[in-house]
Design a protein around this nucleic acid. Structure first.
Length: 211
DNA sequence: TTTGGGGATATTA
DNA sequence: TAATATCCCCAAA
């Protein structure tokens, strides 16, 4: 039995995209076009041209995102942010923020930044790509991302944002994905956060006062 | 209820 | 400073 791989240039399965990503990360920018050969080598069923095209499409997409304004919550140019917000001057308090979930856009930007600058330069990635996140946040995200990458083939129970690699351009709602059961690219209903409130009669309100 | 995804924070190199 | 370890929260199984 032979399983013929569909050789559509438009059909990129999750595995293919994953391999594509790994290739991008594994082979940083080089001067020669050998890069695409190397990357295509790790992407089964894809030719060099297809890989190159896919990359260019990805670049365009992200470029559009950057130009088209990413949902950035008004990043205060915290350059030389002297002093913290009035009130919380004791980090020793038992207060752990909840955190803002990463969006697909942010994640894609992160992936591209990772591709261009390589791992480690969270500073540059944060400055040039994921402008809405601090280097620390990018590093934390990257940590989880790589951890998942390492043990993804094991039985994963839940889906995560790291499962998405590059699909669904802004504006397009098609999800041509026939992956092996379970995707996260399903739409985000509306708000990234769901606070059903009623956390307690004592009013354990969300500690959202650090932005 | 248990599990573990997910982000922040703490600690270390 | 970045890399790693740990903590806490919360939703899915």
């Amino acid at each position: 039995m032979l399983m013929e791989v569909d050789r559509c240039g438009s059909c990129w399965t999750r595995e293919e995209e994953k391999a594509f990503e790994n290739g991008l990360a594994a082979y940083p920018e080089e001067d020669c076009s050998d890069r695409w050969m190397k990357i295509a080598a790790v992407v089964p069923g894809k030719s060099v041209e297809e890989v190159k095209e896919h990359y260019e499409l990805l670049v365009e997409d992200v470029h559009g995102i950057e130009a088209g304004r990413v949902p950035l919550p008004h990043y205060p140019s915290s350059s030389s942010d002297g002093g913290d917000r009035g009130g919380r001057a004791s980090p020793a308090e038992r207060e752990r923020r909840k955190g803002i979930a990463w969006t697909e856009d942010e994640h894609r930007l992160f992936l591209l930044g990772l591709t261009k600058y390589g791992k480690g330069d969270w500073r540059s990635i944060s400055r040039n790509f994921v402008v809405s996140r601090t280097p620390t946040q990018v590093a934390s995200h990257a940590q989880k991302y790589f951890i998942r990458l390492n043990s993804m083939n094991k039985e994963r129970r839940r889906t995560s944002i790291h499962d998405i690699t590059s699909a669904g351009t802004s504006g397009d709602g098609s999800n041509p994905q026939g992956l092996t059961g379970g995707q996260v690219t399903g739409k985000k209903p509306t708000k990234p956060f769901s606070q059903p409130s009623s956390s307690g009669p004592s009013g354990v309100d969300n500690s959202y006062g650090y932005l």
